[in-house]
Design a protein around this nucleic acid. Structure first.
Lengths: 368, 368
DNA sequence: TTGAAAGCGCTAACAG
DNA sequence: CTGTTAGCGCTTTCAA
């Protein structure tokens, strides 16, 4: 990889020496640097003839603005950090995660903003992150799934870096922690809808396979389940799972043992639903005839390929990613909240502060 | 997200106004800016007493160098782009991919270099990538799995951005394409070892479930299979797969039909091996007694959990990622090839140009 | 060994 | 509307 990479066709237009500067463009166009700058940055109020001249010169010279120089004076880097705590093993297998990144990427790209990926290792790394953020390399940050003692919020706050989180932090509106802006799916509402469907189907013993107690996506869905059941809520119909197919299978087995009369199940995610479905079949229960089943996520690789395809609650993960980025970007622009334009997905609604909860939709297939 | 974020404890040391500059540090330490710069950049030849003074001032002021200013003069950005062609759906389900990124991330982090993630959409995006790379935002780039007509190489070349690829490009040493530096696992060698094991086990009808014809990881493994078989190679023992479990199952079914006498199978990856294993069992063949089976990748989530655990060929994906980054970084430093220090994984060997092929290791479990 | 001074390429007042 | 003029914060000759 010699630094003197040979120029390819050797006869292409843009002179391949040192990159042309504003100065060069100005000379070529016969105007001042300021004018070129104005044109390049699309500021209004420049005579059209000059605009054209400048554009031509830019074209001919193959001019590309020097980012560093611009950042130096504007104090804007045009980059956003995406912070991912490494321990989160789920990342390596969770297709959602990548979709979210994709959403973020798309939105940032649309705003000519760069995505700086930071995989944060152990606690030692926090120092590095801290320094990096304080170093003014990025204008803002996006972070995920905060656990109780997550140091990220205080780091970003100390560094004065605006940050938007993905998923409701566990401590929302708790303790003395400041509220942080986040984007999340309407887990509670979605769960409510799922359970209501089961109820409307005439089922009277609706069980729940719950997600991990330390993730809000799990607890919020459980809350939704309780909401829908109201006074009918019964502890013996709730089994604990861990968002994996195996945990779903185990939970279903317990449920079947404890409450053989169960006639419907709402699993907190599709993975657990698939495990439950398997166990249900092994026990000779027909789905949905004997036991109706609803999942959550609409993780297509799972929900569409289970034996009776899974009825589930869909969340727009990519849309959440986009929204996170948009929220951050709007904040950076000094703008207020976002215009309710609805993104690529369904309309977004805002509850408290400047966080956003995105609606979910029920997808009926064959298990309920 | 107001830009005037309130200072948190309000009494912390580093004055929280505008970030301190070199100038400020110099004043505080009672030296010139040049000296501070020298100390900060670790250049030798500064009296120790001054070094200490400067360090103290840096500490007290909470000084962090301004990246943009530095880049402006040094022409080094301290950032590397990781380019990922979006169409590659595998990304969303492939745990390898993330491991590779993790390796890259670790290495870059160790060298204080930022990772700029670029998910490249359709063809329109190439323009953007082109502009970005030409914009001098990054010092180098890392890219993956090149297909025949991939425009990335020409883009990076034109932009004069040193680039290292992950996986052998399909056109290596072909046509008039320039050779590009890449890092890959020794797919051919690994396959050879796998097949030899089967042969040494006394199997005489060793079949192969091949990977996609348009990916070198597939064709190289097929070549390794041929190598090991030599004159004994027989077309009827090769079935085409697509790296998915289903394709492996289908291929195995064909094989069983065409060559019921098959007594061993080398699948080009673990996913296909798992599909094959299922079909084998469904057809009443015992593994490994009746049919021995070897996979490739050592994708632990698969290989360790199949019913007899899978014997397979392991490749160090994270190590490959690290190596890609290291190769790039060394090139950027103007340094020669890498020192044979062996990274986190096994020793690396270099065949042609400045590419590296990493050794694989056979992992014997229970299927062979 | 240290300091003075000259920019890197760009934007943003401020005049004209 | 357009040009002139200061820097942004840092590195790096060049002298001392």
């Amino acid at each position: 990889m010699p630094e003197t990479s040979p120029e390819p066709p050797a006869g292409s237009r843009p002179p391949s020496g040192p990159r042309p500067t504003l100065e060069a463009v100005a000379a070529r166009a016969g105007v001042s640097r300021a004018t070129v700058s104005r044109v390049v940055n699309g500021s209004t109020g420049v005579r059209q003839s000059l605009v054209d001249k400048v554009h031509r010169a830019v074209e001919e010279l193959g001019y590309v603005p020097n980012h560093a120089a611009r950042t130096l004076v504007t104090r804007r880097t045009g980059a956003v950090a995406v912070i991912i705590p490494e321990p989160e093993v789920r990342i390596f297998s969770d297709p959602f995660f990548f979709r979210q990144i994709r959403g973020i990427s798309k939105e940032l790209t649309a705003h000519d903003t760069q995505l700086v990926l930071m995989l944060v290792e152990a606690s030692g790394d926090f120092d590095r992150v801290s320094r990096y953020l304080a170093g003014g390399h990025v204008d803002g940050a996006l972070a995920f799934s905060l656990h109780t003692e997550d140091p990220i919020p205080s780091i970003t706050r100390r560094a004065g870096i605006p940050t938007v989180y993905g998923g409701r932090p566990v401590w929302t509106a708790t303790r003395d922690r400041q509220a942080v802006p986040y984007v999340d799916a309407d887990n509670r509402g979605g769960a409510r809808v799922a359970v209501r469907l089961l109820l409307d189907l005439g089922r009277t013993r609706v069980a729940h396979i719950a997600g991990p107690r330390d993730q809000t996506s799990g607890t919020d869905r459980l809350d939704g389940y309780r909401d829908a059941l109201g006074a009918a809520y019964d502890d013996s119909l709730v089994a604990q799972g861990g968002f994996t197919p195996e945990s779903g299978a185990r939970a279903m087995a317990h449920l079947l043992e404890r409450r053989p009369d169960v006639d419907a199940v709402f699993a907190a995610n599709d993975l657990m639903a698939s495990g439950a479905l398997r166990v249900l079949k092994e026990h000779g229960r027909r789905v949905p005839e004997d036991v109706a089943l609803v999942g959550f996520d609409d993780m297509d690789s799972v929900a569409e390929s289970t034996d009776p395809p899974l009825t589930t609650v869909r969340q727009d993960v990519e849309g959440q990613g986009r929204l996170m980025a948009r929220l951050l970007l709007h904040g950076l622009d000094g703008g207020g909240l976002l215009d309710g334009e609805g993104a690529a997905g369904p309309l977004a609604t805002t509850p408290d502060g400047d966080s956003v909860i995105m609606p979910t939709t029920l997808v009926r297939r064959s298990t309920a």
